[in-house]
Simulated assay, not measured.
Amino acid sequence: MKAEAWLFSGVAVFFAVTGGVYLRYADDPAGIAALAVSFLMSALIAAFLWRQFRRDGYRPEDRGDAQVREAADRRFSFPARSYAPVVSAVGTALVGLGVVQGLWLALIGFGVLVPGVFGFVFRPGADREGGA
């Protein structure tokens, strides 16, 4: 997690510096808003990754002497036959297209997105495995 945290911290700093320069020399409110939102989103991800690193420490992927079996007890793993990521991605894409094409497509997208989110939240077997 530490490498990813550094990466997103660098992205956040880039957007902060770029946004500051753009704010100084440009009069475009849309560009300023886009750079500000980009900074906030990357800073949020960086903060989450730093928090996870402080809480969990190095992952097996981060260490050179790790064994394959150490990564077997991952907290955020989904079964190989989980359809929740695919259903959520399709629903999100339909909602995004619905914003452009019309309300009817966005409503269909929300109808597809809700089961995908429920699949993530209420994953079958999560309580029996002692998982997250």
Score class of each variant (00 low, 15 high):
residue 94 L to N: 14
residue 90 V to M: 09
residue 16 A to P: 05
residue 82 S to K: 11
residue 50 W to A: 02
residue 22 Y to N: 05
residue 93 A to G: 03
residue 82 S to A: 00
residue 40 L to H: 02
residue 43 A to L: 06
residue 97 L to M: 14
residue 104 W to I: 11
residue 10 G to E: 15
residue 8 F to G: 12
residue 98 G to K: 09
residue 48 F to M: 09
residue 28 D to G: 00
residue 87 V to E: 14
residue 63 R to G: 05
residue 31 G to C: 11
residue 48 F to A: 07
residue 97 L to Y: 00
residue 123 R to P: 01
residue 31 G to R: 08
residue 111 G to I: 01
residue 125 G to M: 09
residue 70 E to C: 14
residue 22 Y to C: 09
residue 21 V to R: 15
residue 7 L to P: 09
residue 120 F to Q: 06
residue 38 S to Y: 15
residue 108 I to C: 12
residue 98 G to F: 10
residue 107 L to S: 08
residue 98 G to P: 00
residue 67 Q to P: 00
residue 100 V to M: 12
residue 99 V to E: 07
residue 128 R to E: 02
residue 110 F to Q: 00
residue 126 A to W: 03
residue 41 M to T: 11
residue 19 G to W: 01
residue 48 F to C: 09
residue 46 A to Y: 00
residue 52 Q to W: 08
residue 101 Q to F: 10
residue 90 V to Y: 11
residue 5 A to E: 07
residue 6 W to N: 11
residue 94 L to E: 07
residue 32 I to G: 07
residue 25 Y to H: 08
residue 50 W to V: 10
residue 51 R to Q: 02
residue 81 R to Y: 05
residue 48 F to W: 13
residue 21 V to H: 03
residue 38 S to G: 07
residue 42 S to V: 02
residue 75 R to L: 11
residue 105 L to M: 07
residue 76 F to A: 13
residue 30 A to I: 06
residue 45 I to G: 05
residue 89 A to Y: 05
residue 63 R to F: 02
residue 9 S to G: 13
residue 68 V to M: 10
residue 20 G to H: 03
residue 57 G to W: 15
residue 27 D to C: 00
residue 117 V to G: 06
residue 44 L to H: 12
residue 49 L to V: 11
residue 97 L to N: 10
residue 4 E to P: 03
residue 6 W to L: 10
residue 73 D to S: 12
residue 72 A to I: 11
residue 37 V to T: 05
residue 113 L to P: 02
residue 24 R to F: 07
residue 62 D to F: 08
residue 91 G to Q: 01
residue 93 A to M: 03
residue 54 R to F: 04
residue 83 Y to P: 13
residue 118 F to R: 05
residue 21 V to W: 12
residue 106 A to T: 08
residue 126 A to F: 09
residue 84 A to M: 09
residue 19 G to C: 11
residue 129 E to P: 02
residue 27 D to M: 01
residue 112 V to C: 15
residue 19 G to Q: 01
residue 11 V to G: 11
residue 7 L to C: 07
residue 111 G to D: 02
residue 69 R to N: 09
residue 52 Q to E: 05
residue 68 V to Y: 14
residue 73 D to V: 07
residue 75 R to P: 08
residue 49 L to S: 00
residue 34 A to W: 14
residue 31 G to H: 06
residue 103 L to S: 01
residue 18 T to C: 14
residue 114 V to M: 04
residue 9 S to P: 15
residue 10 G to C: 05
residue 90 V to T: 04
residue 101 Q to L: 07
residue 25 Y to I: 12
residue 16 A to T: 15
residue 44 L to M: 13
residue 132 A to R: 02
residue 54 R to P: 12
residue 34 A to I: 09
residue 54 R to N: 04
residue 68 V to N: 03
residue 59 R to F: 05
residue 61 E to N: 12
residue 11 V to Y: 02
residue 103 L to E: 13
residue 71 A to D: 08
residue 93 A to F: 08
residue 57 G to Y: 04
residue 9 S to Y: 04
residue 15 F to G: 15
residue 63 R to L: 05
residue 124 P to S: 14
residue 32 I to K: 07
residue 116 G to M: 02
residue 115 P to D: 02
residue 25 Y to L: 03
residue 54 R to H: 14
